[in-house]
Design a binder for these strands. Structure first.
Lengths: 234, 234
DNA sequence: GTGATCCTTCGCTTCGCACCGAACCATCCC
DNA sequence: GGGATGGTTCGGTGCGAAGCGAAGGATCAC
């Protein structure tokens, strides 16, 4: 039998403006402190503490204590895609009224953004397409895998991946994630996270105004073309 | 800029036990009257009326007046997959604790069920695979299309589809829908709905105890093998 | 027409919970 | 040690919403 009450609990944990604001702030995959989350939600620290406890109990976020700070992040990519699909229903209007014009209206968000811990938007999809075309990864339906050639390529570029990629690992090496705006898969999983981290470390991309939107740096344009043959102008 | 408040509105519209129960009852794609929904939610009709109005305002369901009855159904397949993914988070526990064992625990639900208005579960995925193998449909990422050969095949089997399948129609002819338990795409859209309706009309399948779970009838096993070459025993 | 059924609107009560002030732990810095 | 900073716990207040009873359309059956 299914569970209507559990459904209500999860939804109720999201359905409050302050908590929703916190979740949106966590959508980029970063871990934020309780105080920072209190600020983005415009509530006092003690109120935020209660909200965070509720969301942890609902398995939406996880908290980790570090010194006198407590960092919170989304419990998983599942939560991120859940929230994105909810925003699509709420923002884009009903599917029956306006079937077109899905995705964020902000052009910058459509061009490039982070989705949980990996790259999304046109940039994410282009990288994904390029890796498929190069035979580095294979994507079929809901499953994805990194080929031997892909492992070599990542090593060349300098992206570290686990040496023994076990199947059925706690976190898959490569997993397709449906892109919100492009409606096509981009690469998530450990490979997606590693690519994203690498892009930040080498300053291929940087956040626009601390948001989820990204811009590709001039140096990044060159590096992306050399590494994966991707054109990012246009 | 993104919209935390719209997110909260949608979630709040789901996050109440009575409303969640109604949505779960509508998950099979049928349209239920306000009175029936009041019963499944265990509230009085006047309370249910208020709940239904809220969910209509949140674009989760749509209401249609017929005589003195008012039928309500989910606003779209988007809503159905949203609710399924929410139940996955709430029911299966956090993704970090038990990464395996996704999908409904009920074996019958895994085998065959309805998802909104089309077939899902092993049965749905097998039909989808068979149609792809026969060249009747093509699925690529988030897009799907019915080939000329597929139209011929449907005509042979006796499944009616719109004669002029316009691209960008208000509802796509064929759309892949990620299967909850199988984690692979099955066929939704108008073709998926037509297939499901046909399977019910010809008594290929029937509901188990009025739930979303389906069983394939002996006659259905034969018909599915003849029409699409699908084995349903095992 | 009259009665019955289905649904909605109105008024009211009650309960939950978001919010903050104050006080209380934990940790870091000096 | 003392002080400062980040978080949490504890009461208490107030708003909002879920719930039902009663009354009011709307539609069908006769």
């Amino acid at each position: 039998m299914v569970t209507p009450n559990q459904l209500a609990e999860v939804a109720a944990a999201i359905g409050e403006p302050a908590r929703a604001a916190m979740l949106v702030a966590l959508m980029d995959g970063r871990a934020l402190t309780a105080g920072e989350l209190a600020e983005v939600a415009a509530v006092t620290p003690q109120t935020a503490s209660g909200h965070l406890a509720k969301m942890v109990a609902a398995h939406l976020i996880v908290g980790e204590k570090q010194g006198r700070h407590r960092y919170h992040r989304l419990a998983g990519a599942d939560v991120a895609v859940l929230i994105e699909s909810m925003m699509r229903i709420g923002g884009g209007g009903p599917a029956l009224r306006k079937p077109l014009r899905v995705g964020p209206r902000d052009a910058a968000l459509r061009a490039a953004r982070t989705c949980y811990d990996h790259l999304a938007g046109q940039l994410g999809v282009r990288i994904s397409d390029a890796l498929v075309a190069m035979g580095a990864v294979e994507i079929e339906g809901d499953n994805g895998l990194v080929t031997r050639r892909g492992l070599e390529l990542m090593a060349e570029v300098g992206i570290a991946l686990p040496v023994h990629p076990r199947p059925r690992a706690p976190r898959p090496l490569c997993r397709p994630c449906l892109d919100w705006s492009e409606r096509r898969p981009h690469i998530a999983g450990q490979l997606g996270a590693a690519l994203c981290a690498h892009a930040f470390e080498r300053a291929w991309v940087r956040r626009i105004g601390g948001s989820r939107a990204l811009e590709v740096t001039p140096h990044g344009k060159t590096a992306l073309r050399e590494a994966f043959g991707i054109r990012t102008d246009g």
